[in-house]
């Protein structure tokens, strides 16, 4: 463990996995989720800081998406409690979580294909009285709000470079454009905490740059951001805080520069190569190694029979 940094302005006390924050927006305790014999999430304690951009990183299968699903009510934990702005949110249905201001996007995009891009956006808005079955029948009751949210949607679409597409079916968008649409749609409700699952996967570098600026802007407007990302440049560039998950657990957290040099993090990412120097990685022979792993797996299977 690097002992150089022990305190941080966001942290109340010493920095370390599960450390207390000065002003946490989400506090989770003892959250576990198993799939059969596999423990996908096993988070003892974690706090997400308010008014900050927090990155959640970790290798494939670390449990990041599952943890997102649990926090937002899309999956049910085996055990655990968590609160958002001081209110317990455990076992609250997903739509209520969203109404409380904790809005998420999905790693595998969920654009509503046979609705136009603009309709997708409008669906993200809140307080539209026309969404009630009875008021829906009388247009004057909801057309004012519709105008207001349409203006807002168009402004967001312009920012995300999707305005020319607003009348097209969302199904006609490219993969990257769908990511952008989903992020823009989530912003329609002015969330308190926005949770982005790999927002930049498949988005071209130039646009990524401008979106990073946009995310920083969200923070300055008072929003808190939690995002999952594999691109370490992006993590380093915009996050104030980084939480590292591996095999379901929070194994490290801290400011980006410190975390990326943390042996526990390197260990989590590189697994078997933890003895190897990062510069030495080319020396390992992945083919031979894969064969060894496959042989072990076969032996295990035989033993099981």
């Amino acid at each position: 463990m690097s002992d150089t940094i022990v305190t941080h302005p966001l942290v109340d006390g010493a920095v370390g996995p599960g450390c207390k924050k000065v002003d946490p927006i989400v506090v989770a305790d003892g959250v576990t989720r198993t799939f059969g014999g596999l423990t996908a999430v096993d988070v003892a304690h974690v706090e997400i800081p308010r008014h900050a951009i927090t990155a959640l990183i970790g290798p494939n299968g670390a449990g990041k998406t599952t943890f997102f699903n649990l926090l937002t009510g899309f999956d049910k934990p085996n055990t655990g409690e968590w609160s958002f702005e001081g209110h317990s949110l455990a076992r609250v249905p997903a739509f209520r979580v969203s109404r409380k201001g904790m809005v998420r996007t999905f790693q595998l995009t969920k654009s509503l294909g046979r609705l136009s891009v603009l309709q997708n956006m409008l669906l993200g808005a809140t307080k539209q009285p026309g969404e009630n079955l009875f008021t829906a029948l009388i247009k004057p009751l909801w057309s004012k709000r519709e105008q207001a949210i349409t203006a807002k949607a168009e402004e967001l679409l312009a920012r995300f470079k999707l305005l020319e597409k607003s009348e097209d079916y969302a199904a006609s968008l490219s993969g990257g454009q769908r990511k952008l649409l989903e992020m823009a749609r989530a912003l329609m409700s002015d969330p308190v905490l926005i949770m982005l699952d790999e927002p930049m996967a498949g988005v071209n570098p130039a646009l990524t740059q401008s979106l990073l600026g946009h995310i920083k802007q969200l923070k300055s407007e008072g929003m808190s951001v939690l995002f999952v990302e594999h691109d370490m440049h992006m993590v380093r560039h915009i996050s104030d805080w980084v939480i590292v998950m591996a095999e379901g657990k929070v194994v490290a957290e801290g400011p980006p520069d410190q975390v990326m040099n943390d042996p526990a993090v390197i260990d989590a990412y590189l697994g078997a190569h933890h003895d190897t120097d990062l510069g030495d990685m080319t020396g390992a022979n992945p083919v031979i190694e894969a064969k060894e792993v496959a042989a072990q797996h076969a032996a295990k299977k035989e033993g099981a029979i």
């Binding site: 739509f95 998420r104 996007t105 969920k110 509503l112 989530a186 409700s189």
Partner: peptide, 18 residues
């Protein structure tokens, strides 16, 4: 719009607070 959204993907609509 909400109903048609549900036809397309109900989890997405749920994530938007409906």
């Amino acid at each position: 719009r909400v109903v048609k959204g549900i036809r397309e993907d109900e989890d997405a609509v749920r994530s938007l607070g409906k």
